[in-house]
Design a protein around this nucleic acid. Sequence first.
DNA 1: ACCTGAACACCGTTCAAGT
DNA 2: ACCTGAACACCGTTCAAGT
Lengths: 201, 201
Amino acid sequence: MARRSDHSRFELKEMAIKAACRIITEGGLKSLSIRRIATAMGYTSGTLYQLFENLDELILEVIISTVEDMYSELAALKTDNDPEANLLLLAQGYRDYSIVNKNRWNAVFVYSQPDARPMPERYQSAVQKLVGLAARALEPIFRNHDRSDELAFQEARVLWASLYGIVSLDSAQKLSNFEPIDDIIASLVTNYVAGLRARQV
Amino acid sequence: MARRSDHSRFELKEMAIKAACRIITEGGLKSLSIRRIATAMGYTSGTLYQLFENLDELILEVIISTVEDMYSELAALKTDNDPEANLLLLAQGYRDYSIVNKNRWNAVFVYSQPDARPMPERYQSAVQKLVGLAARALEPIFRNHDRSDELAFQEARVLWASLYGIVSLDSAQKLSNFEPIDDIIASLVTNYVAGLRARQV
DNA sequence: ACCTGAACACCGTTCAAGT
DNA sequence: ACCTGAACACCGTTCAAGT
């Protein structure tokens, strides 16, 4: 072997990320390993270290592409003029995606940078785009403000983080599940929006 | 060696859980291993399999005791008569605990049962007690209802899950942190309570 | 009965050696 | 330059063997 050059560096990276994605989809993040990815690609583990710093960097790529993938699903949803209805639509889309792509989305929940470093810029901007969808839905509420977009984005971030908590607890079955998750999500959105409205007067 | 009986089965379990707790506190969940716990106890790894089914069961004990520990901290907080002020107090306590006991609380976030099984009863009831604190704070809002305690508990669960999302995203630095976490928490509590109030009329 | 330690089947990561 | 595969230092888990 050695010196095959069947694929460009770029192609190899793509192959690795795709293989990792498939392994996570099938067996969850815990089942992922460098050796397994290498085998799935038809290479050996050493090769992966020429493409990525380490396993964490590779996982990060899967995470980011998953967030981006969710964005394109949510962005395609038909929108409503009413902020509450719009947000409910987005939240249901979020929940649907996290159920259909359970293992992949769970990886997004569980992954964290080694040594408590912050998540990289590329991840942040992928999330930013998702939060932006909620922000646009909220904007009508802040019509009378001069900085309506900024305010909407702040509140959208709160809703995003809250939804993240609800869905992640539900997915790990960490919330005694007497109530269906849809009711919990509806409760969050309805009350939060009602609160924003009440405080705008 | 072999056959020492220096400690009862119960003592050994306690020792193992305490050792695991210390290792997690110092190096995070990732640094925990059966072998490391065994060494810290002065035993070998085989012994731990007479005390616990596997590593997951041992981690679960640490998780539960951490949730219980947080409960006793939050339960000791002095309470206010106003629901909003009371909830803010609890939420700040939650945040404080998660920062002071960062690695331990992070383990609570990250841990999930193998094979997607639900979390066991003991964990659920430990969480239940925590949610109960928020439920009691909310009750004045539902005074006029016949099932005020049930309603309060449902809404408390929504707030609990949302707070969980905010703190976990912040702890992993997954939320572009332009806003301080205290503002995000305040925004959640204020708007949610305002919404509940507005919808009670 | 209690505990050990070797054994098995895995890991992530590095790097000299081959083409 | 590209890729391999052995090597290192770890894993979780099992279980025959010792006292």
